[in-house]
Amino acid sequence: MIIMKKNPTLIAAIAFIIVCLLLFGATFSIRVSGEQGNRLGPRFFPRLILGLIILFNAVLAYQSYRYPEEQKEVEKIPEDRRKRFIGTTILGVLTGVAFTILGGFTTIFLFVFAFLIVWKQRDLKVLILTPIFITLGAYLLFYELLSVRMPKGFIDALFL
C-alpha cells in the first residue's frame, strides 16, 4: 500500500507488464494460415507492439524504482470526495446494466437523479426538475430530432 501511494508509476509499470504478458500469451490462440504463419501473419504485429510496451514499461519501472524521489505521490482524497468518486463510478456501471433492462430514457432519468444525490445536491427543486428537464431534452433531441432508437426495456416500452 505504501509503495502504491509513494510510487504509483512503479505499480502501473508492473501492472502493464503483467497484462501485456498475458495478452502475449493470448496471441498463441490467434489462427494463422500456411506459410505466412508466425512471421508476418496476424500474430506478428500485436506481438511486436506488446513486446515494445513490455520493454518500455521495464525501463519505466527501473527509472521509477531507481529515482523514487522524482515520482509524484498519490494525493490523499478526503472521505466525502472519495465517496462521490466511488458513487459516480458505480452509477456509470449501473447505467450500463440498466440501459437495456429498464430502457434508455428511464435509465437516464434515474441516473441523473442518483447523480445529484451522490453529488450532495439536497435542494428538492433541483432534485426533481433537473432529471425531468435533462430526460425531456434528451428525448426531444435524440428520439424526436435525430431518431436515435434507445433500448426500450420494460419501462420505456410502456410509453414509447
Partner: peptide
C-alpha cells in the same frame, strides 16, 4: 457542475450508444 456533469454524462451514454445502437459501445 452538478447540472453540467449529468448533461455531459447523458451525452456520453447516448453518444456511445447511438453509433451503432449497441450497448457494448456504452460499456
Amino acid at each position: 457542475v452538478y447540472i453540467l456533469n449529468p448533461i455531459v454524462l447523458v451525452l456520453c451514454i447516448i453518444g456511445s450508444y447511438s453509433l451503432g445502437n449497441n450497448v457494448a459501445d456504452v460499456w
